[in-house]
Design a protein around this nucleic acid. Structure first.
Lengths: 210, 210
DNA sequence: CCAAAAGTGTTTCGGATACACCCATGC
DNA sequence: GCATGGGTGTATCCGAAACACTTTTGG
């Protein structure tokens, strides 16, 4: 029993997902989603949370269960049932660390995926769809932004995740309708137009999540 | 590793869910959702499908995965991870059969649930929410109806599942917008108003499912 | 005939979309 | 000063919801 995690990150340009490369057989040299075996006294959520801590060194990032995959032949050697999760983090937080049975770790743009081992292509596809569904229903991407940010930057996060362009004015109205956005009354220097900087009221944002 | 299944049935009056009562310890005499252990060469979907065949003798009923529960203490004796599914069947198809470690099986109205063992109250709650979400998005309840039926009967199925009353005219327009409903040009006798009977084009209905 | 239920069409509302103008800044 | 981007408001569209009248049938 394992937990596989699609760790999505936004780095300022494109949405990326963390991939690892196995250093041991089977599937040596093949790219995979990071995964870990569930330990005797932990939940699958614990397992996924440990992955996040070990690979990208983040704590308290919400994880979302997606689905469970149980085909008997999905792993060529032994029976492995896996439950998938997704999480959203900022890649800058920490460089991913290759360790144990992995020899490489990389942030891969979701539009330029290599071949993935096992059934991880399917798992990633399902996780990405779940991420988009969630983002359309609740504002779960604001922890990717710096302490203060412009609405343009927030919009770029949304567009990168959803993979589509959004109307600037409609996006603005939609997220300003929330009350967790606080106008700092300051303008971001060095940018034409002088965009206003906003920050998040964490307590109020939390009310919209989950 | 087990699969637990919330088997929902519509019997003409209210939405019901199939509950079983354990005949052995632990939790002897306690009501539960039916569940089964995954066998070595089957998927969890297979396990859930076998439950449906053994308990209510139906085949080819679509099942929907809901979530996986892995808390170490959810089962008092040993570690059991379970993946939940829901399915929609017609209770008239077959009387449920008590066998093996069960001494009773019943169709229980979802509004009058007894105490459930383990964490099955939570599992059932999640499954019911998933059922409602799915029904709002796709017409997955028409196999509960007889070969020919009135729109009123179809509406009652929807209302029982969703637990809310629907506007007759809006409901009518919404489902007539689909092209899988065929007017048989016959009227149902014995009912005031002389409602028209419809039947389903299975091939076209299938296009809207999944 | 009359009560009850079925068939039909219109209005309204809210959210989402599309779109145009003015203002602020960097160069 | 001018090109680029930011801030603001309005018209439109679409699906959902609310709603009233006529027709058909059983009693």
């Amino acid at each position: 029993m394992t937990a596989d995690c699609a760790i999505f990150g936004f780095s300022g340009d494109a949405l990326r997902v963390l991939l690892v490369r196995r250093a041991v057989e089977p599937f040596k040299g093949v790219w995979l989603l990071p995964g870990g075996a569930m330990q005797p006294d932990e939940t699958l959520e614990d397992t996924a949370t440990h992955l996040l801590r070990n690979l990208v060194n983040v704590e308290n990032v919400p994880i979302h269960q997606v689905a469970t995959y149980s085909s008997p032949d999905r792993h060529p050697v032994r029976r492995v049932i896996t439950t998938s999760y997704f999480a959203l983090v900022s890649p800058e937080d920490h460089d991913p660390i290759a360790r144990e049975y992995l020899d490489r770790v990389k942030w891969c743009p979701v539009e330029q995926l290599p071949e993935l081992g096992f059934d991880h292509r399917l798992i990633l596809h399902d996780a990405y769809e779940a991420l988009k569904d969630e983002l359309r229903q609740q504002p779960l991407a604001f922890h990717l932004l710096p302490d203060s940010f412009t609405l343009k930057e927030a919009q770029e996060v949304y567009e990168s995740i959803l993979g589509e362009e959004l109307d600037r004015r409609n996006f603005r109205r939609k997220i300003l309708a929330y009350d967790f956005l606080i106008n700092t009354e300051q303008k971001k220097p060095g940018v034409k137009g002088g965009p206003e900087l906003y920050r998040i009221d964490d307590a109020k944002l939390g009310q919209y999540l989950q």
